[in-house]
């Protein structure tokens, strides 16, 4: 054992010696380092560019840009609050719908499904994540929106019309449609990552619980507790997708900068504002306001993704050390 160990150390040392004297390895090492650094630079550069582009708007509106609720290109008044509201609310509601479903799917795939079923279903779930968002959008326009307009929204307003969230005219296009589309789009991300997280938890944990006399459900609960931070990370990645989603949302959300409690009313998100209005942005200030919107979106997504990665990473590290 001891001999083996010292052998492997010697082996490593010799390899290190060789590599430091090898020109090809040296170039290869530095080149890959350069590629990696360039990714960082790119992100910083993008942030800087957006900051530069939005200086006009920042100077004019200051923090008021985030708290004022008038978005009026004609008057040249830009307040992003309804747009930020639309982004946050549509993503948050989408997650509230998608999360329990995704965890259910993940538990089924990781804990319950037999092998022959798990493989194809997991593949299908991951395939769902790869569908271009414009296709979701089209499906939204031709299937989801008419269905909401003709069946779901009239029903909801008849039965639950006393709730402020179900008031107003049932257009079909609006917050509800966007929430449902986003829920469907985040579902595969959250469920496939959660499934991987559950699978990364050693089988011995389940055995430990079962051998203590746990039922299958109780042992799954213990595993879920272990997987908590990883699933949270998966959720954040889903949130990142929902917040940044542009095409499908633009096609169904109704595109009006409006803060309304009703899910039937149209709304707007940061990504869809940028996509819709960039071509029409004729004045410098308009362009600058849109760029500032992009900057806000950029910062939010970076923070969310960083947090998500951190959580997933801390999770996998824990299992490696224990």
């Amino acid at each position: 054992m001891n001999n083996e160990l010292s052998d492997s150390i010697k082996d490593k040392l010799t390899r290190k010696l060789i590599s430091s004297h090898n020109m090809g390895d040296f170039i290869f090492e530095k080149l890959t380092l350069l590629f990696t650094v360039s990714v960082f630079l790119l992100v910083i550069l993008m942030g800087y560019e957006m900051y530069q582009g939005s200086r006009l708007s920042i100077a004019k509106f200051g923090w008021g840009f985030l708290s004022s609720s008038t978005w009026d290109p004609v008057q040249e008044i830009y307040g992003a609050l309804p747009i930020i509201y639309g982004t946050v609310v549509s993503s948050a509601l989408a997650l509230i719908i998608a999360l329990p479903l995704s965890i259910g799917i993940a538990i089924f795939l990781a804990e319950i499904a037999p092998d022959w079923l798990e493989k194809p279903v997991s593949f299908l779930v991951e395939l769902l994540a790869g569908i271009p968002s414009v296709i979701y959008g089209l499906w939204g326009i031709f299937v989801l929106v008419p269905w909401l307009r003709q069946s779901v929204e009239p029903y909801l307003s008849e039965k639950f019309g006393y709730l402020p969230i179900f008031t107003g005219a049932p257009y079909g296009f609006g917050m509800l449609a966007a929430v449902l589309i986003l829920a469907i789009m985040t579902l595969p991300i959250i469920s496939s990552i959660s499934r991987d997280v559950l699978k990364s938890i050693p089988y011995s944990q389940r055995e430990a619980a079962l051998a203590l006399g746990a039922t299958r459900w109780q042992s799954t609960l213990i595993v879920l507790k272990d997987a908590k931070s990883g699933i949270l990370g998966a959720t954040m990645l889903g949130l990142g997708r929902a917040i940044g989603e542009t095409m499908a949302v633009t096609m169904v959300i109704g595109n009006r900068a409006l803060i309304s409690p009703s899910l039937f009313d149209p709304s707007y998100t940061m990504a869809s504002v940028i996509a819709n209005e960039f071509t029409e942005a004729t004045s410098q200030l308009y362009l600058s306001a849109l760029t500032e919107l992009a900057l806000v979106l950029f910062v939010i997504t970076i923070v969310i993704n960083a947090l998500a990665r951190l959580l997933v990473w801390s999770m996998s590290r824990k299992w490696k050390t224990s």
Binding site: P202, S204, Q205, E207, A208, A209, L210, A211, L212, G213, A214, T215, I222, K225, D226, K228, K318, S322
Partner: peptide, 28 residues
């Protein structure tokens, strides 16, 4: 499930529940 409460098992690789404290592991 009831049987395993009467016939306990200790595994080859120690498998405490990592998210639980020492106390809660025994109390699990």
């Amino acid at each position: 499930v009831l049987l395993r409460k009467r016939v306990g098992m200790v595994f080859q690789k120690p498998n405490p529940f990592p998210t639980m404290s020492i106390f809660n592991n025994v109390a699990a």
